[in-house]
Design a protein around this nucleic acid. Sequence first.
DNA 1: CAGTATCCATTCGGATACTG
DNA 2: CAGTATCCGAATGGATACTG
Lengths: 136, 136
Amino acid sequence: MENRTNNEHQTLTKATNLDLPQNNFPVTQILKVIGGKWKILLISAIAEECPARFGELRKKMDGVSQAMLTTQLRELERDGIICRKAYAESPPRVEYKLTELGKTLINVIGVMRDWWQMYLENQENQIFPEVGFADL
Amino acid sequence: MENRTNNEHQTLTKATNLDLPQNNFPVTQILKVIGGKWKILLISAIAEECPARFGELRKKMDGVSQAMLTTQLRELERDGIICRKAYAESPPRVEYKLTELGKTLINVIGVMRDWWQMYLENQENQIFPEVGFADL
DNA sequence: CAGTATCCATTCGGATACTG
DNA sequence: CAGTATCCGAATGGATACTG
């Protein structure tokens, strides 16, 4: 995610909408860091088992391709959430850890997970009963 | 997003991966509810001004097309986050409000926003200094 | 083992035109 | 005013083959 705030005058054939004001809202931005399909899963997995190896992560994700896993890990590394250390051995070994910054995400993910749990329970038990518009 | 938990035997020409286990992780699911490009923005906007009208929301989003706005609002409604009331007037008027369930999202969004703020400050001031892998 | 490179399918976001 | 219908390009996700 390069800085794209100063290229309003880019010469692309079609406006790419990258510079529209709404793209600067925090909520839009944070989803670029943690919004990848596997990223929150990866962060959680690395938090659980730290350091984590590439192969272990792949098994835990169960379904992700090598290419996707590499892409997502590289983006997390670029954004300062995880760090990567490759050992020059044979066979090669690569370990991933959360950075201090990355560790602060655990709480955020926990809040999201808790909300989802509540959401599911509400679907079953109607903690928040359905109410008409006028009652809200 | 219809209920797709019971269609493992769907007859699509190619497996759609909708039923893979990882799709049942909470973190993957919650992003389906709040992960749309405009959804968190919409929730925040409706929370600020409640009820909110379609036209007002469109102005605030500044850049979203009518079609997208409608889609996102419909999905939020379907997922129980907002409710919609259309007044049979001319010209027509439609108002949106957060449901009680939707209001519980405000805190979640706040946590995400706070984290992003911290993330930006860290990029500028290095609250969390860069450290080597061995130090983590 | 832990990747890259390449290609393909699907999904998402958006532009435009039309409507009650 | 607040939509719906249709079409399209971009972005995302994934399968497969190859590599140090």
